[in-house]
């Protein structure tokens, strides 16, 4: 009997005071080893590889808005020297032309924006050029979305279901062509 009494008195609990510390350590480990920041960037789709014999699809000269960037970061817009900031307006006029001006596109779905660089062009300038072109598209999309009674293109896109067609992109498809660069002038 005295033996039984002793057993009852002895505590059979696991000490849980340090449990929080262990959990904290694990938490800190995961906080350090994981990435939380959302990746942002400019999305593009590369053209699929063409066969050697196959010619690229013909596009009328007036439907292409040509942007050339040289090794010094200077911009040639439709063969005229121009500032980087002008690109956005030009893209918007090009897209919304609808055949009015003979120098710009016939219709929005035929309009193509072509960017060509040198091999020595700084990547930074290229991204700025591409960014301006995309901002041109975004502002056209925004105004088209407003015609459909949405406050912005983003709102319209969010309201679309997974299988619904994007009407804005149907009217103004993003057609940006990235041409292969010229060899350039040797060392920059």
């Amino acid at each position: 009997m005295p033996k039984m009494k002793k057993r009852e008195r002895g505590e059979a609990e696991i000490p849980t005071a340090s449990m929080a510390d262990i959990a904290f350590l694990l938490l800190i480990f995961f906080l350090v080893t994981t990435t939380i920041d959302v990746d942002t960037g400019i999305g593009m789709t590369l053209p699929p590889k063409l066969d050697q014999e196959q010619d690229p699809p013909p596009v009328k000269e007036r439907n292409i808005l040509k942007i050339l960037v040289n090794a010094q970061g200077q911009v040639l817009l439709e063969d005229k020297p121009s500032a980087l900031t002008r690109i956005r307006e030009e893209v918007i006029t090009h897209l919304t032309n609808n055949g009015q001006n003979a120098n710009y596109s016939e219709s929005p779905d035929k309009a193509v924006v072509s960017i060509k660089t040198d091999r020595q062009t700084p990547y930074d300038i290229y991204i700025q050029t591409l960014d301006e072109v995309w901002m041109g598209y975004f502002s056209v999309w925004d105004s088209q979305a407003r015609e459909l009674n949405y406050p912005s293109y983003q709102e319209y896109k969010n309201s679309l279901g997974p299988d619904e067609e994007n009407q804005v992109k149907e009217i103004y498809p993003a057609q940006i062509s990235i041409a292969e660069p010229d060899p350039g002038s040797g060392e920059s």
Binding site: T40, I42, M44, P48, I178
Partner: peptide, 16 residues
């Protein structure tokens, strides 16, 4: 990019 076209990985993203 040319290598990516060869591989067929056409969806790219210029991280910025």
């Amino acid at each position: 990019q040319q290598e990516l076209r060869d591989a067929g990985t056409l969806r790219i993203n210029y991280s910025s």
